[in-house]
Amino acid sequence: MSKGVLLVNLGSPDSTDPKDVKKYLGEFLMDPRVIDVPLWARTLLVKGIILNTRPKKSAEAYKKIWWDEGSPLIVLSERLQKKVADRTSIPIGLAMRYGSMNIKKGLQELHDKGVNEVMIIPLYPQFAMATTETILVLAEKLQKEYFPNMKLIDVPAFYNKPEYINVLSKSITEKLEGIEYEHLLFSYHGVPERHIRKSDISNGNCKMDGKCCFKKGSEQHKFCYRHQCEMTTVQVAKKLGLKNGTYSTSYQSRLGFDPWLKPYTDRTIERMGKEGIKKMAIVTPAFVSDCLETLEEIAMEGEEIFHEVGGKEFTTIPCLNDRDDWADLLANWVNEWVAVKTQTA
């Protein structure tokens, strides 16, 4: 079989025009794995309320971070794709879960190159309903409908792979070299608490008290976003030799009034500033590419909150983006897959 790879990231509006932002938000928020309520309620919430109020505000936020080349997330993903392609011998495609660079187009481009076995790599270190799962479910649906002779395999969540932890830790070390800080905050994208329960394959073992997150050998951890975020923090902290009390985990970007994973990033930043922390650094390991949530919500809004409550120095650590060692790592996974497949062919 002819092999290829499809890297898949979140997506972006085509431009900062409110019409493009509204179209993008509509697709994103109508995904039943993002807002997981009955269709009638989701339609009322998204089309009746959010899309009538949020696009203009979101468009202004996108304008703050937009590059001359376009959306930072798209540009950085394309740079990463090129670097991985330069390090491998098979076609490397790129798609987005939402927006015009959709998964169907990505699969079609690989199909047109003669590829009939595709490794899908969701560019998310941790598994979540609203990220990894929605990508894989849609890819399988498209495969059955449009590419019946194409075989799909996927790369599981890689949050705990030592080689990933090494690359992430190195990126943090390089950014913080020569910088004094009192606290390092690991901020992950938030999800509703009910998403954790829905992904719980232990039939109710998760009590959302944080205890089972640190229990070793639990099968449910394979699909527990909270556990995977907590373990990413623990492993990086160990790698960096961080002392207890000098780092912590929080969750950002909540939507609506339902309980989301806590503690919330904005409130954590505010609390630390009020408690006398003057120098803090923040890293966002749920994202591999800088985007609206890292460049505007954290680097701009987060810093503003910190300064308002007395904080002095706020250091944001870039995502892995198109780092050479990150491209090397992805290429190694691809090349190992190709080598194994070749040996067993």
Rank of each mutant, 00 (worst) to 15 (best):
Q228I: 04
M129G: 00
F214K: 14
R79E: 12
V84Y: 11
E145L: 09
E275P: 06
L242T: 04
K104D: 13
T284Q: 14
T268Y: 10
L29Y: 12
I90W: 00
V118G: 01
M231Q: 15
C224T: 05
N116F: 00
V338H: 00
H189Y: 12
T316F: 09
F257W: 14
A281G: 09
G190K: 04
N52L: 15
L94S: 11
R197D: 06
V84Q: 12
C319L: 02
Q252L: 08
N244E: 15
E293G: 13
S202V: 07
M96Y: 03
A345Q: 09
W66C: 07
I92F: 12
S218D: 12
M300W: 02
N205S: 13
I172M: 05
E174N: 14
V84R: 12
R323C: 01
F306R: 04
K19C: 03
V288E: 04
E78S: 13
A345I: 05
K56S: 12
K19Y: 11
L45R: 05
E163V: 03
L329G: 03
K83E: 14
E133K: 13
F287C: 11
G26D: 13
K83G: 08
E27Q: 15
V75C: 09
L39I: 08
S100T: 14
G106H: 03
G210S: 08
L320I: 02
M300P: 01
N332K: 15
V167D: 10
S289C: 12
W67F: 12
G26T: 14
T246S: 15
I165M: 06
L255Y: 05
V84S: 11
D328V: 03
I269P: 07
G217I: 08
E140A: 09
A286H: 04
D14L: 12
D36I: 05
E308F: 05
V340M: 10
D266L: 07
V137M: 05
